Computed example of a mutant assay.
Amino acid sequence: MGPTLKTCGELLRPLRALMALKQVALQRGHFADQVPYAAAGLLTELVHRGECRASDLAHHRIVDASVVSRQLGQLEQAGLITRRPDPADRRVSLLRATPDGERAVAELERRKAEWIASALASWDDAKVRELTRLLGDAMDDIRRHTINEGICPAGPGTREGTR
């Protein structure tokens, strides 16, 4: 049956607030050191996924390949990633985080965890784990639905490859 539109509409309020907090963190410079902010998520994804193609990163992050390409250029210029030819298709590169990239992500993740721990100081671990599980489940389902529907991040109702 699924949730009602009213209930899902209510969920949008805290999701908008969560996204606004991300912007506040950016504006206050909490996470902008050696990693260009726009590319930090991509570098983190690459560290966690391991070596892969740019198209795989774009698909998983549900963004246009041109966005990934610009961000990868920034990361490469900063010495945080390397490229090598894909042995299966030498026209394509495989990307990997450098040791400096891995250290930058570890520091970024540590600082984010400290920020969240401070903000949620009155919560216990069980409550944080439950929130983690629920958000993870929701994001997995939303990502899967978005990818399966072929919805392009450019806007509602558009499909990948139809620009």
Rank of each mutant, 00 (worst) to 15 (best):
A39T: 02
P156H: 13
I62Q: 11
L75A: 00
C52F: 02
L18D: 00
K22P: 01
A117V: 01
A119M: 06
E10D: 15
Q23C: 13
P99R: 02
C52T: 06
A104W: 05
E109T: 14
N148Y: 09
S66T: 10
R129G: 08
Q34D: 10
R103L: 06
G29R: 04
E130Y: 05
H60L: 15
E102N: 01
T132W: 15
M139Y: 13
P14A: 03
I62M: 08
E114C: 07
S66F: 07
A40E: 01
G150Q: 07
V105L: 04
I81P: 05
P85M: 09
F31I: 05
I151C: 10
A38Q: 08
G29A: 06
G161M: 13
R111T: 02
G157W: 10
G136W: 06
R159F: 05
G50P: 04
A113G: 05
A121G: 01
T98R: 02
L42N: 02
L75H: 05
L120V: 10
M19A: 11
A25Y: 02
A126R: 08
P14R: 02
A88K: 06
L21E: 11
R70L: 06
I81H: 01
M139D: 08
D89N: 12
P3Q: 11
L57Y: 01
S118K: 11
P3D: 15
G136K: 11
I142M: 11
E102V: 03
A54I: 01
L21Q: 14
G161V: 13
A88G: 06
E10S: 15
R53K: 09
A58S: 07
L12W: 04
E10Q: 15
R103P: 00
A38T: 04
E45R: 10
T4N: 05
A104P: 00
G29V: 05
K6Q: 13
L94R: 00
C152A: 14
S66H: 11
Q27Y: 14
T158H: 15
D100S: 06
E149F: 09
G79N: 09
T4S: 15
V35E: 00
C152W: 11
N148F: 09
P153W: 14
G136S: 15
L57G: 00
F31D: 02
C152R: 04
T4P: 08
L94D: 02
V92Q: 10
G157F: 14
K6M: 08
E160F: 15
L5E: 14
E149I: 04
W115Q: 06
T82I: 11
T98W: 02
Q27S: 13
R144P: 08
L11M: 12
V35R: 02
I147F: 09
A121Q: 03
L26H: 12
Q34A: 14
G73D: 09
G29P: 04
A126P: 04
Q74L: 13
G2W: 13
A138P: 12
R129F: 10
Q77R: 12
W123V: 01
R144F: 12
W123L: 05
G73V: 01
T158S: 14
G136Q: 12
T4C: 10
L131Y: 10
